[in-house]
Amino acid sequence: MNELITVKDLKVHFPIRKGFFSRTVGRVYAVDGVSLTLSRGETLGVVGESGCGKTTLGMALLRLLEPTGGAVCFQGKQITEMTPDERRAFRREMQIIFQDPDSSLNPRMTVHQTLGGPLKVHRTGTSAERKDRVEYLLTKVGLTPHQADRYPHEFSGGQKQRIGIARALALNPKVIIADEPVSALDVSIQAQIINLLTDLQQEFGLSYILIAHDLAVIEHICDRIAVMYLGKIVETAGYRDIYHSPGHPYTRALLSAIPRPDPRIKRDRIILKGDVPSPMNPPPGCRFHTRCPERFGPCDQIIPEIQEVEAGHFVACHLY
């Protein structure tokens, strides 16, 4: 079986409650009908702007959030229907790296406690074996074993992110979901973390789902890219296709909007008008139609289905 994760029509809605009786007065359609797959050893990038639902999607894949509808299957088993034993096994196989290394490490735990925690919870090895494992993990992420007894505040931002990565690796997972792993870091430190992630993938045969807003980072790391807009995936394709022949008008605008570190690049920038609409009240029809430069007849009424326009290249747009 080659597919590790299959997501079908996943929906995560958050109720908005108001008043004394906390009546539900509306919903935030954070993730609204997302389907995707992740194969073994693959790196899938999920790119989109703030509020598009990419982080919620990551949380739902790990079942840190309960889906409202649809299914997430890990190795063929639906994660919401697992028995407690199966769930424990599933938790070992999928791990997450968070954006902000400051708030995702417990300031009162030493590195040893942070990294040894998951090993203890999953009853792995004796205390001496766990100590060895922690030291091994630290060297793998470019830190030294003698740093194991230090607290998070004694490390720099980049080093803290390395600790976050070591924690995700602790249980030898198959899949790591990395939610904006480099966006809180300085440029020169970003390169260190990106290189570390690609090295670890090679060494441990990991599959990644990389969630980010920076298309240059996504293109550098990922094999396949899914572009999200307002809770829906608008385009999925290999990284070359996304760059060379983007199909969806939003992908094209996104590509052209990125400032390039090269003053000679002449650009025909597509400037999108207006702001991203609220996910509480998404526009009818295609959710992008309010800002789309190529909008026509059916766009504001009919929701476009995602369809294969070329082999492995899926676009949800009425232009096709």
Partner: peptide, 20 residues
């Protein structure tokens, strides 16, 4: 040399980012 550039990998293959 440390920033990934958009389109670089699609046109010329993946380059290892230079770390400071």
């Amino acid at each position: 040399a440390s920033v990934p550039r958009l389109g670089e990998r699609s046109t010329g293959g993946r380059r290892r980012l230079r770390e400071v």
